[in-house]
Design a protein around this nucleic acid. Sequence first.
DNA 1: AAAAGTCTGAGTGCCCCTGT
DNA 2: ACAGGGGCACTCAGACTTTT
Length: 253
Amino acid sequence: MDQAEVATDILFKSRADRERIRPDLVSAAVTGFGATDVMRFLGQKPHHALTGEVVIDSKKLPEGCRITFRIRRNAVKRYDHLNVLRIETTINHPAEFKILNSSENAEGQVICRWCPIRKGVSNFWRHAEVAHGANSRLIDALANAPLKGNPTEALDHLCRSQSKAGQYVAAFNPVTPEKIALFKALLAGEFHLNGFRNRDLQTKLYSDPSNNPIETKRRTHRTSRLIAKLRGHGLIAKPRSRILASIASRTTA
DNA sequence: AAAAGTCTGAGTGCCCCTGT
DNA sequence: ACAGGGGCACTCAGACTTTT
């Protein structure tokens, strides 16, 4: 095999969702990563005897932006197409990666040694392994890119009080443990198909069931207020009945 | 500068209406 | 019948303004 390409695709719900974070990812990839980062992506350790050039190259294409991180003839790159963000590792010179080979010595003992990867069939699995590792490291690094675009605006919107149809809706403080538990419960996925009711949300927010009628009433009312607040911020919608709420698409932001 | 007063937003209790 | 939820009023805390 002369060249190996291993791609990891990240599917977004829509092209718009992907494009919303693209400028921040591109900016982080071009300005935030250096030579040592590129070496780490491709599983290389910096050392004094290293020769060759580390290249970070960005190119605008009709369907998006491609950024390539290259060391000599091996590279890992990110590019976009429709609703897919693709991370792809291209190996042209596998000998720069290592594979653990075992052999028997004259005494019949099994000796394991790290050897350069070859282009033969028996080493294919290792091509895939190192390429997946490179893809994962780049994805993890991009996941930590600071987002300045619409997601931040959405969070900012959440932290401000709203006025909907003349009704005042209080702001959320999304860093309190109670609100984190609320958002975790909403995003758990169980409610995405059939929505949820007040009591469904209560089972997520309170670990122990209430035996006190007054406490039960208080919990119901408190949860009712939370639902109204979520609706006021456009995070949930009431599709059919008045007791059924479903999660709006913005919640995933 | 400190104290007192005012304003604003968040949370909650009570009452009562509505839809299932 | 009852759970869900809207309206109103109230408390509390913090920010801001005015007074001493």
